[in-house]
């Protein structure tokens, strides 16, 4: 959220609600709607650390709104963010813990765990397919969903490997 807001403010100054709208517009319907409260809290923190600067603008018939602009420090922070390679996704380590620790506990057997996890992934995959079918005209959304699907496919492949090795 921090970096997203910095990136939007690097383009032009905006107030909180505009930023929420810009996020929704940029990422499309598949992206979970940003919470306005969270946006205001993040803006407050960014301002406190000097990465953005806020100014109250009075409005005739409504309460003042606070318009933010990015500072030089903010631009440096943003440049560092773009500079740094992004970590890849991690193995679903909680499931792996369950799988490895299950035998002998009397709590679950591995096949049941694998089946349960596979069903969960497939249901998620189906949900993503539905979502993809609805927003076919939004390319950013489609790419986001496709990425999520490819990750899920990898998770499912890995589940098969677990089954082959541990059965």
């Amino acid at each position: 959220m921090r970096e997203s807001l910095l990136a939007l403010l690097a383009k032009e100054p905006a107030h909180g609600y505009e930023l929420k709208q810009a996020l929704e517009h940029t990422f499309g319907p598949a992206y979970p709607q940003p919470n306005i409260g969270q946006i205001y809290v993040t803006l407050g923190r960014l301002e406190k650390t000097g990465l953005i600067r806020g100014q109250d603008v009075s409005q005739s018939s409504r309460p003042n709104k606070r318009v933010y602009e990015i500072t030089d420090a903010g631009r440096e922070e943003l440049a560092a963010w773009f500079e740094k390679p992004t970590e890849g996704p991690r193995v679903r380590d909680e499931f792996f813990l369950k799988l490895i620790l299950a035998p002998g506990t009397g709590g679950a057997d591995r096949l049941a765990l694998i089946n349960k996890q596979r069903r969960h992934y497939l249901n998620t995959m189906r949900g993503l397919s539905r979502l993809a079918a609805e927003g076919r005209d939004n390319r950013v959304s489609q790419l986001l969903i496709e990425g999520a699907m490819l990750h899920l496919q990898a998770d499912l492949d890995w589940l098969e490997r677990c089954q082959e090795e541990l059965e």
């Binding site: 992206y31 979970p32 249901n123 998620t124 949900g127 993503l128 979502l131 969903i145 999520a148 990750h151």
Partner: peptide, 9 residues
């Protein structure tokens, strides 16, 4: 939901 979680950036 799971779906939001999977899509969250």
């Amino acid at each position: 939901t799971t779906l939001a979680d999977v899509l969250e950036l």
